[in-house]
Computed example of a mutant assay.
Amino acid sequence: MRSEEFQYGGAKLRYEVSGRGEPVVLIHGLSGSAHWWRHNVPALAAEYRVYALDLAGYGHARRQRTLGVQENAELIAHWMEALDLRGAAVVGHSMGGQIAVRVAALKSGRVDALVLACASGLLAGNPVRVALKLPRATLTGRPAFLPRILADSVRAGLPNLWRSAVSLLGDSVAELLPALDIRTLVIWGRRDALVPVELGRKLAAAIPGAEYRELPRAGHVVMVDAPREFNAAVLDFLRRPGAGAAPENRV
């Protein structure tokens, strides 16, 4: 694994690269970092070239002002163009899933598949009220992961967390979904207390041909709460040519 850095328009994107093969891009959510994928990278990197991002203002790309959802998508699109990534699968968690939808909607022709994990693209509400759900969301997840959540939140800083929350809650991807012509897997933790499963089902139903999966023992950080099931579902989806070409719902 090696770490790299990309700068564009004054914004910095850090990323870790592992494995060989077709590109898989991992985008973390609000308060996250590339480290949130540590249970998933080894399994994915055994078959693919994996790029785990630190968004501007987060992880190793901290000490800068975070970007909004659309600005993050544009930065990632420029990064993919600079690296000439083609046929990529973009995997996004929570806010990262919302960003991933916008990356795909830019129609660059570089994204071949989407995996949306507990994506926030249809979440709405007051930032304070949504924040009040965080304690319950934490309790429904893996307790051992709480120190990482707290550490990454502190590293990002309250101003960046607030700006990201305001941006994602003020940005709906609903109008983009019917026009997505990219094979898509929507995967959710059934115990998600932050972005309810109803929104996951609604998200999948709005994307033509999307496949929907629920993991019964997982909460919001689905790839950490149930890594084996998550990795198996994602790899199964990515290995199948034309995955998502026909509607399929599995619970």
Score class of each variant (00 low, 15 high):
residue 199 L to C: 02
residue 25 V to P: 01
residue 157 G to M: 11
residue 8 Y to W: 13
residue 172 S to A: 11
residue 183 R to P: 09
residue 100 A to D: 10
residue 136 R to A: 15
residue 102 R to L: 13
residue 250 R to P: 00
residue 52 A to T: 06
residue 42 P to L: 05
residue 140 T to W: 03
residue 45 A to D: 04
residue 93 H to A: 11
residue 92 G to C: 06
residue 141 G to R: 01
residue 238 L to G: 09
residue 245 A to R: 11
residue 231 N to L: 05
residue 183 R to L: 02
residue 21 G to A: 07
residue 134 L to C: 03
residue 84 D to P: 07
residue 180 L to W: 01
residue 61 A to P: 07
residue 176 L to D: 10
residue 148 R to N: 11
residue 6 F to C: 08
residue 89 A to V: 08
residue 43 A to F: 03
residue 113 A to P: 00
residue 221 V to N: 10
residue 64 Q to A: 09
residue 67 L to G: 10
residue 12 K to E: 12
residue 134 L to P: 03
residue 164 S to T: 11
residue 112 D to G: 14
residue 177 L to F: 07
residue 209 G to V: 00
residue 1 M to H: 09
residue 31 S to N: 13
residue 191 R to C: 07
residue 64 Q to S: 11
residue 247 P to F: 10
residue 112 D to E: 15
residue 113 A to H: 12
residue 80 M to P: 06
residue 221 V to M: 06
residue 75 L to N: 02
residue 80 M to Q: 07
residue 140 T to Y: 12
residue 101 V to T: 10
residue 51 Y to C: 04
residue 228 R to P: 01
residue 55 L to I: 11
residue 109 G to P: 02
residue 239 R to S: 12
residue 41 V to F: 06
residue 76 I to F: 12
residue 215 L to E: 13
residue 162 W to S: 12
residue 15 Y to N: 08
residue 126 N to D: 15
residue 212 Y to F: 15
residue 76 I to D: 04
residue 168 L to I: 07
residue 50 V to P: 00
residue 85 L to T: 11
residue 177 L to Y: 04
residue 159 P to C: 09
residue 222 V to N: 00
residue 236 D to V: 00
residue 15 Y to Q: 09
residue 37 W to Q: 10
residue 160 N to W: 00
residue 207 I to T: 02
residue 109 G to F: 02
residue 171 D to E: 14
residue 65 R to Q: 14
residue 117 A to R: 02
residue 51 Y to V: 07
residue 220 H to S: 07
residue 37 W to V: 05
residue 141 G to W: 02
residue 217 R to C: 12
residue 37 W to D: 08
residue 72 N to D: 15
residue 99 I to W: 03
residue 42 P to F: 02
residue 161 L to R: 13
residue 170 G to A: 04
residue 19 G to V: 06
residue 147 P to G: 08
residue 62 R to K: 14
residue 109 G to H: 13
residue 198 E to D: 14
residue 6 F to N: 08
residue 231 N to Q: 08
residue 169 L to C: 10
residue 4 E to M: 10
residue 248 E to S: 15
residue 237 F to G: 01
residue 107 K to H: 14
residue 38 R to D: 12
residue 115 V to R: 00
residue 79 W to Q: 09
residue 108 S to N: 04
residue 208 P to L: 02
residue 78 H to C: 09
residue 97 G to Y: 03
residue 220 H to D: 05
residue 85 L to K: 08
residue 204 A to V: 08
